[in-house]
Write a protein that binds this DNA or RNA. Structure first.
Length: 587
RNA sequence: GGUCCCAUAGCUCAGCUGGAUAGAGCAACUGAUUUCUAAUCAGUAGGUCUCUGGUUCGAAUCCAGAUGGGAUCACCA
């Protein structure tokens, strides 16, 4: 559409002798109720023309129509110049742009970006909150790649610390040597079970101590279980062989379980970092900051940074005993990641409860003069809440990821069977399809909303399969494929005839795809793609309903509609892939 | 208390750097299938865009304030 903007700049120069920048012209889609495809708002030009918005629009419209062969008509309503572009232009767009293999393949921008997501703790299975994180991270990575970045997907696994020791301790005390093999339980669930047991027993001890007259705080500190867990952590840090062995064994169980969940979610990673390797990092940065005066030492030996000038607080970066805190590690890990990959940008997909932490982290790194710090970005997303409130793994009030995935598949199965369209499928093929549809529904449900917004998930109200949903779009794809399977495409191009409105709208929508990718990449928002592909599917369905493809008026029209269908299926499939959603050939 | 995020139809959400009569889906009601997949399409109904001011030819959108909801301000991660 750039040619219209360029001509409008010229029009204003010739008609009103004024220079305006192309960026000052706002070109927008014409609203459905008016004639035309693009609209120019003429209010801003009246100060040059010194005429009414209507008259200005008419003059510019006349100029454009005379100078551009693509423009077939125009009309002016109030301050809006609506332009109709001729069918030949749109048909040309279909054959020379949309149908080409490199359509919506954006040029490499020479930039490398790291997307860190998932980042689970290894003491419990993944829940719905993690699912949102994983889908968001994976989709953003896909979108950035489509937008021309070189993308590195990383997962920083929190595999050490007191929470893991709690699971280990509870397993030692109450586990009777249970293993995933002996119980048939998925490894991460087995370990998570002992995490919950720990919490239950710990609470009992607290109650008991309170009944003996201790305060809540004292009881929490003095309970034997927490003391034992802390001892375990000290032994781990000292490298005690038996403790390390148990830790390794239980983590292996968990990774095995996570691997299955990741596979079911369809997410993957290029590089894993483990906190057991990185938790001691960052101390050299502390020294560096002390020397440069960015940090200061208090009397007790603890190290701090004063951010009050930036509207934040004083923040501890190293304990008095010289051990690191979360911030210390994160500084060190940020540096490690940069040393490994020298990326231009680094995106942390982490919940919004850590907004403050990342604000501080990035600010500290900037103050330390790290040139790469300006490329750091916290992709913050809202929590997933249940009607009953916040999910808490410790208390077992979570929507488990594996359960949810299984449920989605069951629902997909029931819906599909009720329609009875795939009775000729083999068992394996059926299972595959149920998974594709179930995950399509779940992924679309989670990705269509703005990441910033918190999400309320009611487990009793199942995720929809009709309307503005993943399966709706998947269905549109399958439907197109079904038509295409019944026809032969000869590859002959149509004559530039007059397009029906539904055909033209479909091409117009298709041409927007590259822009959508760019927009989604800039905003780190898969929702942009999700809403676009829904719009596209709706537009196709309308076209499909109004026009017969196989029984078209003549062979040329038929071939044209087939090509239009090919293009639509291609864009739908590609857009859905940016969301990490597969589209079936039949359903 | 300080800081950050959110507020649009009964419900779940779109609405790009300000533009026309604020759009979808779900739920409710009506209609379309001897015709390419009806998980579809067409229609009816549903709104003080939380409130108050400001900027502007023009504000759901930008600014200020208020109200409500959430998060955070740990020598936890």
């Amino acid at each position: 559409m750039n040619f219209i903007i360029e001509s409008t700049v010229k029009a204003i120069k010739e008609l009103y002798h004024a220079d305006i920048a192309p960026s000052d012209i706002s070109l927008q889609e014409t609203r459905k109720e008016f004639e035309g495809q693009v609209t120019i708002v003429t209010f801003p030009f009246t100060k040059f023309s010194r005429k009414s918005p209507e008259q200005t629009g008419a003059e510019i419209g006349e100029y454009l129509k005379n100078s551009l062969k693509e423009i077939s008509a125009f009309n002016v309503i109030k301050g809006f110049l609506n332009i109709s572009i001729c069918s030949a232009y749109w048909i040309d767009q279909l054959y020379t742009e949309i149908l080409k293999d490199d359509f919506a393949v954006l040029k490499p921008n020479g930039k490398r970006v790291m997307v860190e997501y998932s980042s689970p703790n290894t003491n419990k299975p993944l829940h719905l909150g993690h699912v949102r994180n994983n889908l968001l991270g994976y989709s953003v990575a896909q979108i950035l790649e489509a937008a021309g970045y070189e993308v590195i997907k990383t997962n920083l696994v929190n595999d050490r610390g007191i929470h893991i020791c709690k699971s280990m301790l509870a397993w030692q005390l109450y586990g009777n040597g249970e293993t995933p093999q002996s119980t048939g339980e998925k490894g991460d669930h087995l370990v998570g079970k002992y995490y919950v047991i720990f919490d239950k027993e710990y609470k009992k001890e607290i109650e008991f101590l309170k009944s003996e007259g201790q305060t809540e705080e004292e009881a929490k500190k003095n309970a034997p279980l927490i003391k034992q867990a802390q001892e375990l952590l000290l032994k781990w840090e000292a490298g005690d062989e038996k403790v390390i062995d148990l830790w390794k064994t239980m983590n292996t169980w968990v990774y095995d379980g996570f691997g299955k969940t990741y596979k079911a979610l369809g997410v993957e990673f290029d590089k894993f970092y483990y906190e057991s390797n990185t938790y001691l990092l960052g101390k050299d940065i502390i020294d560096e900051g002390l020397q440069s005066g960015v940090f200061f030492k208090k009397e007790d030996g603890s190290v701090w940074i004063d951010l009050t000038e930036d509207g934040l607080d004083q923040k501890l970066v190293l304990r008095a005993d010289g051990t690191s805190v979360y911030m210390t590690q994160d500084m060190g890990t940020a540096k490690l990641k940069y040393d490994d990959f020298q990326m231009d940008e680094s995106i942390y997909v982490v919940g919004n409860e850590q907004d403050y932490h990342f604000k501080v982290l990035f600010l500290i790194l900037q103050k330390l003069g790290k040139t790469w710090a300006k490329g750091l970005f916290h992709l913050s997303y809202g929590m997933v809440d249940l009607p009953s409130g916040k999910m808490k793994s410790r208390e077992g009030t979570v929507v488990d990821a594996d359960d949810l995935i299984a449920e989605m598949k069951t629902t997909a199965k029931a819906q599909t069977e009720a329609l009875g369209k795939i009775n000729d499928f083999g068992e394996e093929e059926k299972e595959q399809l149920y998974h594709t549809i179930g995950m399509g529904a779940l992924k679309y449900f989670l990705l269509k909303v703005d990441p910033k917004k918190r999400l309320l998930f009611d487990p009793n109200e199942s995720v929809d399969f009709q309307g503005h949903t993943g399966p709706f779009i998947q269905y549109t794809h399958a439907r197109i494929k079904s038509v295409l399977n019944r026809a032969t495409i000869t590859g002959m191009e149509t004559d530039p005839t007059e397009l029906a409105p539904e055909e033209r709208d479909l091409i117009v929508t298709l041409t927007q795809f590259p822009d959508i990718i760019t927009q989604a990449a800039i905003a780190y928002n898969p929702g942009t793609v999700a809403n676009y592909v829904y719009e596209l599917a709706k537009t196709y369905n309308k076209f499909y309903h109004e026009h017969s493809i196989l029984q078209a008026e003549d062979e040329l029209v038929k071939q044209f509609r087939l090509e239009l269908s090919v293009a639509s299926a291609k864009v739908i499939s590609k857009a859905m892939n940016l969301l990490g959603i597969d589209v079936p050939e039949r359903m």
